[in-house]
Simulated assay, not measured.
Amino acid sequence: MGEISIKINIADRVYPLKVSMEEEEIIRRASKLINDRLKEYQENYAVRDKQDLLSMAVLHYATESLRVERKVTVEDTEVADGVYRLDQLLTDFLSK
């Protein structure tokens, strides 16, 4: 599919983007999440500078991304270990 032009508002600044139609919804949802996080930080902390709020939001989402990445890696390793053990059991069973 082709690209479309959209405008995303983050921290009261508009960013024109060209995105694929499949990505549009995800990008709009991401923009909303970022703005919601900024609003939450602004309401709960004595931080008013948009740059500081954006930095805090980036740190939050980067940390969350790394947590998920680590969890997926651990789960992938556990699955691979399980498949290896199952393969060994089947090999042992079939060789008898």
Rank of each mutant, 00 (worst) to 15 (best):
K71E: 08
N44H: 08
Q51L: 15
Q88A: 09
L38M: 07
A46R: 00
L33W: 03
Q42I: 02
R13Y: 02
E3N: 11
E25M: 11
N9G: 04
S65H: 09
E22Q: 12
A57K: 00
A46L: 09
L38F: 00
S95F: 03
V83E: 15
A30H: 00
E22H: 09
L53W: 10
V72A: 07
S31E: 15
A57E: 03
Y15D: 11
V72Y: 07
K39W: 08
V58G: 11
N9H: 13
R48E: 14
V58E: 05
E40S: 08
D52S: 12
K96C: 12
V68A: 01
R70H: 08
L89N: 15
R13P: 01
E78N: 12
D76H: 01
E69P: 01
G2M: 06
V47W: 04
Y61T: 01
Q51I: 07
F93Y: 13
V58D: 07
L38C: 07
E43S: 11
E23W: 09
G2H: 07
D36P: 03
S5A: 09
D49E: 10
V14H: 04
M1C: 06
T63K: 12
R70E: 15
E40F: 09
G82I: 04
V74F: 15
T63Y: 10
D12Q: 11
Y41W: 08
G82R: 15
V68T: 00
R28L: 14
E25A: 15
A62S: 11
